[in-house]
């Protein structure tokens, strides 16, 4: 599968501070890629570099086969971005916000009207389309920001902390929309410090710590790779908890529990991404 995004030896410094160091990664077309890291790890800086808003101090970033620093108007039209800050005009209505950005892309008024109304219905903002953005809740602004990102039917979608500070229902709704975009063939690059989000949505993740990628891979594979304990946690119907190692004898014990209908649940002890991050860096993701 062809890569939608490639970064080779990418590095960036703000004056004396080195924010990103020797970043090498690739994102395949049509996949959801998650960049995980605590606040200040360099996630937004990396998005800014990939989208050409920032020139890397060193290395190269390529998006859809084009150097990020050389992106033209037509190439920008294939990129949708939802930023950590909404970037919406507070005094303008939801509809006018979307209309403005659609006009910037050179769409005709008839086409704009139909498409904006359809998207506003899809994200459940049609009823409030004439309301100024300032009067919307945070969840609504988030959905509107997402609507703006998908309005131009992008090939690549950048979502910078898309669910940060949202309630569980809105988060769930947004996850659904993200997966729908993936089903349409859109490549999605999302940053988050929410490990559950990454495990649920992403095909591949990279853990970013102090500007360095400390781990990269499929979330499940990473969890298996760092499963040092290799144990089974068994909960029996009588309320007893049993821990067994990955040994030949354990198979007989588990078989006996099953045979005697004593087994309630059985789990492996694979770590989650948070635990892996802590093991690799000594710090927490959600900082």
């Amino acid at each position: 599968m062809q890569n939608a995004i490639e970064i080779c030896n990418g590095a960036h410094s703000f004056k004396e501070t080195e924010v990103l160091k020797q970043i090498n990664l690739s994102v395949k077309k049509g996949e959801i890629f998650g960049l995980l890291g605590p606040s200040g790890a360099g996630k937004t800086t990396l998005i800014n570099i990939i989208t050409g808003q920032l020139h890397p101090s060193e290395g190269k970033s390529i998006i859809q086969g084009v150097d990020s620093t050389l992106l033209s108007g037509d190439e920008y039209k294939k990129i949708g971005i939802m930023m950590d800050h909404f970037g919406l005009y507070e005094r303008m209505s939801c509809y006018d916000n979307l209309k403005f950005y659609a006009k910037l892309d050179g769409n005709s008024n008839d086409e704009i009207d139909e498409r904006i109304n359809r998207i506003l219905k899809e994200i459940a903002l049609f009823e409030v389309k004439k309301l100024p953005v300032a009067k919307l809740s945070k969840g609504m602004k988030n959905r509107l920001s997402f609507a703006r990102a998908i309005l131009r039917r992008p090939d690549i979608l950048f979502l910078d902390e898309p669910t940060c500070g949202l309630d569980p229902n809105t988060t769930e709704e947004l996850h659904k929309r993200i997966l729908e975009e993936k089903a349409r063939g859109t490549t999605i690059f999302l940053t988050t410090h929410n490990m559950h989000e990454a495990q649920k949505l992403c095909d591949h993740v990279a853990l970013l710590h102090e500007g360095i990628i400390v781990a990269y891979g499929n979330p499940s594979e990473l969890c298996r790779k760092y499963n040092h304990q290799r144990r089974f946690l068994i909960h029996l119907k009588n309320g007893e908890d049993v821990e067994l190692g990955h040994e030949r004898d354990s198979a007989d014990t588990i078989a006996n529990y099953l045979k005697n209908d004593e087994l309630e649940t059985i789990h492996t002890t694979e770590p989650d991404l948070e635990t892996i991050f802590m093991e690799l860096t000594g710090g927490k993701l959600n900082q």
Binding site: Q53, S72, Y76, H85, G87, L88, E90, L104
Partner: peptide
């Protein structure tokens, strides 16, 4: 302040 300039940049303005 509202970060709308950054968005405009993404629209190649």
């Amino acid at each position: 302040e509202q970060n709308t300039l950054r968005v405009l940049q993404m629209y190649n303005v």
